[in-house]
Write a protein that binds this DNA or RNA. Structure first.
Lengths: 191, 191
DNA sequence: GAAAGGAATTGATCTATATCAAGTGCCGGA
DNA sequence: TCCGGCACTTGATATAGATCAATTCCTTTC
């Protein structure tokens, strides 16, 4: 259960078994069924969440009730609403499971203690956030300047497994296009 | 010269005068004329850059030679290409001055030493990057799901001074729309 | 295993925004 | 001070992608 989490951490930084035990001690596992919420709009997000297996989506709902997918997180990715975590304010997002999913949760306070006690963890977090920032900025470029087809091809190249695992409608929403358009693009692409 | 930088740091964290002197000792000032480059595509970006006064833009140039503005940075903002800084690879971006600008530069190595010696600085950096990440993600939402007019109004609300200081063409590029469309929107908006 | 409801496809329009094309104004350099 | 050129505006047309609508295809669910 915690093995994949340990493997993940060790692939990025060096910590001792004892240190990992301290981390495991403050971690809890939550199992989500398909469509089950991990976070609902209006709640305050207080965790660091690591996806052990499965796949979740983070999305917001506009005034018309339309869902807009912000991103996905699969096994060995982190998820959550950093804005709410940092500010302590209610989240404007929802997170729910696209597939049956296991998530490892560490409360904000416990996580901060861990980072203070184990500097390697702080380093790892800093590193991940920096990379997330770069990745998000690159995604912004794609959205700002690419056509619908280019955006789809870019996604295929970067995350081919998302294309296979996620229903068309959610991919369309993630790309900021309609399901109809994505369906046509797929026909087009496979010639 | 370094006063505004000091004021900026002290508004975010607590450091001593002696500590600031250490920071100032590794800082250099670069003055840029309008249109002068701070970074050119293909070069490796090795700095942390704080805008003391003026305004710069970060942009990329596509295969057709079209410029796409990624973001702007004005006084008391940081700029640079974190992707190149982290990876050590050549940058795919350019940075140049929109207005005559003064930038304070700290080399990557020196900056890392500072952060190790002065933990408050490390904290500050971590904090800034987290906020940048959140801001970029929010911008992504705007670009993905808003109309041209909504994007412009959002920018007016968040950065009214950018609207005044930056030429129309660059704002259009930042918003991912054509100058013609932005010109029409402006007419529309002022009714 | 049948029925029901959502998800994807396909087709026919519609619309926001891009593109192309003049014209106007204004700023910077000689 | 004048000139040249870029930046912005305004108009006419083109187009990518949205919207609306009908049909088929899967999944769930009982």
């Amino acid at each position: 259960m915690f093995e994949s989490f340990k493997k993940y951490i060790l692939s990025r930084v060096v910590i001792t078994d004892a240190e990992f035990e301290r981390i495991a001690a403050v971690s809890t596992i939550r199992r989500l069924r398909k469509k089950q919420y991990l976070l609902q709009e209006g709640d305050v997000w207080r965790f660091n969440a690591f996806v052990v297996s499965g796949l979740v989506r983070l999305y917001r709902v506009d005034d018309k009730g339309t869902e807009h997918v912000v991103n996905f997180a699969k096994e060995n990715w982190w998820t959550g609403d950093r804005e709410s975590l940092l500010s302590g304010k209610p989240s404007k997002f929802n997170i729910d499971a696209v597939e049956p999913t296991e998530v490892l949760l560490i409360g904000k306070e416990e996580f901060d203690v861990i980072c203070r006690e184990i500097p390697a963890m702080a380093t790892m977090v800093h590193d991940i956030i920096q990379k997330s920032f770069v990745a998000t900025q690159n995604r912004l470029l794609v959205h700002k300047d690419f056509t619908a087809e280019e955006k789809y091809l870019d996604m295929m190249e970067k995350y081919p497994d998302f294309i296979l695992r996620i229903p068309l409608g959610m991919i369309a929403s993630y790309l900021g296009i309609t399901p109809e358009t994505l369906s046509r693009i797929r026909n087009q692409v496979k010639k």
